[in-house]
Structures are given as structure tokens and as C-alpha cells.
């Protein structure tokens, strides 16, 4: 079964980067990526499907408008089945604890360690199979 992942970041080049990093997984048909460039857009994407096909959301914290942490709270209250992990340049305790207390699964810091991210996504795909 294909796993659909939503990545939320205000930097648009993230999309290109992720598509190349996970090109093998995408090619093999195990993974589908979609992208949102703000929290608002992410909620629109999730809300456009019923039930949402996205199973995992990776979100940046520091974005103009709705922050990643706000988005986390909203996803957790509306779509409690979706796993959410945070990716932030600010890996301080305050952010970490707030994310974890709000129900985030993992907390990745920027620059992204793609090895651990791949491992996380690999485990998810395995669990999804």
C-alpha cells in the first residue's frame, strides 16, 4: 500500500529536495509525497479528502502565519489518526517539549539528517504494509 506523506515548509525548494532524496521510494510506488507551503495550505490539503489519505505530516515550526506548532494542534484535534513530526531549525527544549506534549511523534532539527528521516519513513512504510 502506498504511503502518502505531507511536508509543510515555507521554503519551496524543500519539495525538489525531498523528491530527489526519496526518488527511489517514489519510483517503487511505496511513497507518495505532497507539499504545503503554509499551515493554512496544509489544513486545506488535509481537509480536501475525506478521509485524508495522508498518513504522516512533517512540518516546519517556524513559518509566517500559522506556526508548525499551531498546525500540530489543529491536525491532532481534527485528524487524530495522522502522525505528525516536527522539523525545525530551532531545536531548543521549549519547542521540543511543546511539540512532544502536543502529540508530535518525532522532532527533527535542521539541517535535516536525511538518514534518520529515511529510517523513520522506512519504518512507517513497513508498518503500513
Amino acid at each position: 500500500m502506498k504511503s502518502k506523506i505531507l511536508i509543510v515548509d515555507d521554503e519551496q525548494d524543500v519539495e525538489l529536495l525531498f523528491r530527489q532524496k526519496f526518488r527511489k521510494e517514489i519510483k517503487s510506488g511505496n511513497l507518495e509525497l505532497c507539499f504545503a507551503f503554509s499551515g493554512q495550505q496544509a489544513l486545506e490539503i488535509l481537509g480536501s479528502e475525506d478521509p485524508p489519505q495522508v498518513v504522516y505530516v512533517f512540518s516546519d515550526i517556524n513559518m509566517p502565519g500559522m506556526s508548525g506548532l499551531e498546525l500540530l494542534g489543529k491536525i491532532k484535534s481534527k485528524f487524530s489518526d495522522i502522525t505528525v513530526s516536527m522539523i525545525s531549525a530551532y531545536g531548543d527544549n521549549q519547542n521540543y517539549e511543546k511539540a512532544m506534549n502536543s502529540g508530535a511523534k518525532e522532532f527533527f532539527t535542521k539541517p535535516i539528517d536525511f538518514e534518520s528521516l529515511k529510517k523513520e519513513i522506512g519504518e512507517m512504510i513497513l508498518g503500513n504494509k
Binding site: E11, D13, L17, A89, K110
Partner: peptide, 17 residues
């Protein structure tokens, strides 16, 4: 620092990939 970190991350990531 934050503003430089972002593009630098991209430079590193894109050269890696």
C-alpha cells in the same frame, strides 16, 4: 544566522543529493 543557515542547508543538501 538563521537566514544564512537556510540557504546553506539547501546548498549542502542539493550538493549531497
Amino acid at each position: 544566522a538563521h537566514e544564512i543557515q537556510n540557504p546553506l542547508n539547501f546548498v549542502n543538501n542539493f550538493s549531497d543529493v
